[in-house]
Computed example of a mutant assay.
Amino acid sequence: MKEWHGAAGICINGNNEVLMVKANNSNAWAIPSGGIEKGESPEECCMRELKEETGYTVRIMKQLFVKDTMVKGYHVNTYYFLVEKYGESSGIGDPDGLIEEYRWLSLGEIGKVEHAYLEDKEVLKKLLTSLL
């Protein structure tokens, strides 16, 4: 069976908004994430992907959970981390050229926008609600 291992970083700012990204030719928003490269830890992958996709440098606060699912014939494991940004964004530097935009979304906006991964919508709503 084919496998894919990745990491995702949930970053929440002081206004209780979540950092989200949107891919080219898509209206759907997603938590910044990507595949773990050879020799890289899930934590390192998470920090690299956030930097590439949003320009923000982040530090890992804690691991939240691992999503274990099947997608298009692949067994997918995605490590989810709560991260904290420091400094300002240096701009999108995605080497794959997939990310078109990043934005901070509020709890209300999370409920209204289209999500690339529908299951993440509930995760974000629960996390944000717990902070209010």
Score class of each variant (00 low, 15 high):
Glu49Gly: 00
Lys62Ser: 11
Gly35Pro: 05
Asp68Val: 07
Gly111Phe: 01
Pro32Gly: 05
Lys72His: 14
Met1Leu: 10
Leu128Ile: 08
Leu107Asn: 13
Gly39Arg: 02
Ala30Asp: 11
Leu124Glu: 02
Thr78Gln: 05
Ala8Trp: 03
Ser130Val: 07
Leu107Ile: 15
Asn77Val: 08
Gly55Ile: 08
Glu17Phe: 05
Gly87Thr: 04
Lys125Pro: 02
Pro95Val: 03
Val18Ile: 14
Phe81Tyr: 15
Gly34Tyr: 01
Asp120Ser: 12
Tyr86Trp: 14
Cys11Glu: 12
Leu131Tyr: 07
Leu64Ala: 06
Cys11Ser: 14
Leu118Val: 14
Glu17Leu: 05
Ala8Ile: 04
Lys38Tyr: 15
Glu40Ser: 01
Glu52Tyr: 09
Arg59Gly: 07
Glu101Leu: 12
Asn24Ile: 12
Ile60Gly: 00
Met1His: 12
Asn13Tyr: 03
Gly9Val: 00
Asn24Gly: 04
Lys112Ile: 06
Ile10Asp: 04
Met20Asp: 03
Val123Arg: 07
Ile110Ser: 08
Leu19Tyr: 06
Phe65Thr: 13
Pro42Asp: 03
Ser130Ile: 06
Val71Arg: 13
Glu49Thr: 02
Gln63Met: 15
Ala116Cys: 09
Leu64Asn: 04
Gly55Asn: 08
Glu37Ile: 02
Ile92Ser: 03
Phe81Cys: 02
Leu105Phe: 15
Ala23Ile: 07
Pro32Ile: 03
Arg48Ser: 02
Gly108Ala: 13
Val123Thr: 13
Asp94Gln: 03
Ile31Val: 15
Ser106Ala: 10
Ile31Trp: 06
Glu53Phe: 06
Gly73Leu: 10
Leu124Ile: 11
Leu131Thr: 09
Ile36His: 01
Thr57Val: 13
Glu119Ile: 12
Gly39Lys: 01
Ala23Cys: 11
Arg103His: 11
Asn25Ile: 08
Ser89Gly: 10
Leu98Asn: 12
Glu53Thr: 05
Tyr56Cys: 02
Gly6Ile: 00
Tyr56Ala: 01
Gly97Glu: 08
Ser26Tyr: 09
Lys51His: 09
Lys22Pro: 00
Phe65Asp: 12
Tyr74Gln: 13
Tyr86Cys: 09
Ser26Phe: 07
Met70Pro: 02
Trp29Ile: 05
Met47Asp: 01
Met70Val: 15
Thr57Met: 13
Glu40Arg: 01
Leu50Phe: 01
Val21Ala: 10
Glu52Ser: 04
Thr57Asp: 15
Leu50Met: 14
Ser26Thr: 11
His75Val: 12
Asn24Ser: 08
Gly93Pro: 00
Glu52Pro: 01
Val58Trp: 00
Leu131Asp: 08
Asn77Lys: 15
Glu100Asn: 11
Tyr56Val: 02
Gly108Ile: 06
Gly73Thr: 10
Val71Cys: 08
Ala8Gly: 15
Lys72Cys: 13
Pro32His: 06
Ile110Ala: 12
Val58Tyr: 00
Trp29Gln: 05
Glu119Val: 12
Glu53Lys: 13
Ala8Val: 03
Leu118Tyr: 14
Asn15Arg: 12
Glu53Asn: 07
Ile110Phe: 08
Ser130Glu: 14
Arg48Leu: 02
Ile60Phe: 00
